[in-house]
Simulated assay, not measured.
Amino acid sequence: MTVIVWIVEGTWPACIDAACVYAPEGSDLVLLHVTGHEVSGAAHGAYAGLLGRARPDRDPGTAVEHLAATSAEQILARAAERLGRPCTRQERSGRVEREVVSAAEGADLLILARDGDRTHLGPRSLGPTSRFIVDHAPCPVLVVWPETAPSTATIPPPPPHPPHHR
């Protein structure tokens, strides 16, 4: 069984804990971190746009890319340590939602954490990236709460009119 665990700063411990509980012993565990191009791309663009034909060796976007790679390595190392089981660490870069969906191809399970409004139960507990992944994942998905789930009292009341049956 191949289990992909999407590692994101702030929510990854809950995903690792879920993998410990739900991934059978002997599973091929893949810890996946994806670095988006947004920040480094903005730095590259700003540098090129503001300073014209400047020297590429001074481009701050390159420094941001190196910092992101170091951060990814560190978070994956911490996640692997918490997991305490053999695993593969995978780093990708690109459009985060598409990279995660692509990585899940052929997997038996994808584990990710809620990243939206975590004060209420419901669809807004998933941010846009996680929503895309849940909607497009080519395998079963386990969505976990990064902390204790809100009470069922946070579910909105039903609509005032009963639904029409056809």
Rank of each mutant, 00 (worst) to 15 (best):
D108H: 01
A68M: 14
V143G: 05
Q74C: 09
A79K: 03
C87Y: 02
S93C: 13
A104F: 09
R58G: 11
R85A: 04
A153Q: 14
S130G: 10
R95N: 12
D117H: 01
G94T: 05
R85I: 08
R82A: 15
D57P: 10
G45R: 09
A68T: 11
A149G: 04
L67W: 08
V143R: 00
E99Y: 06
A137E: 14
L110R: 02
C87V: 13
D115P: 01
A113H: 05
A103I: 03
S125R: 05
S151R: 03
A69R: 07
P123Q: 12
C87E: 09
L109S: 00
L110C: 03
R85G: 01
G45D: 13
G41I: 06
A68H: 10
V96D: 00
P56N: 12
G116R: 13
E73R: 10
G36P: 10
P128N: 09
P140W: 05
I111S: 10
P56M: 03
F132M: 15
G61A: 11
D135I: 11
R98T: 13
A69N: 11
P146H: 08
D108Y: 00
V39I: 08
H120V: 14
V39C: 07
V101Q: 06
D115V: 00
G41M: 00
T35N: 11
P86F: 06
E38Q: 08
G127R: 12
R85H: 02
V101M: 07
L83I: 11
R58E: 12
A63E: 05
E38T: 11
G84R: 06
E91W: 06
D57T: 01
R92M: 14
L83G: 12
Y47F: 14
Q74N: 11
I75Q: 04
H136T: 14
T70K: 06
S71F: 03
H44Q: 05
H44G: 15
A149P: 02
S151L: 02
E147H: 11
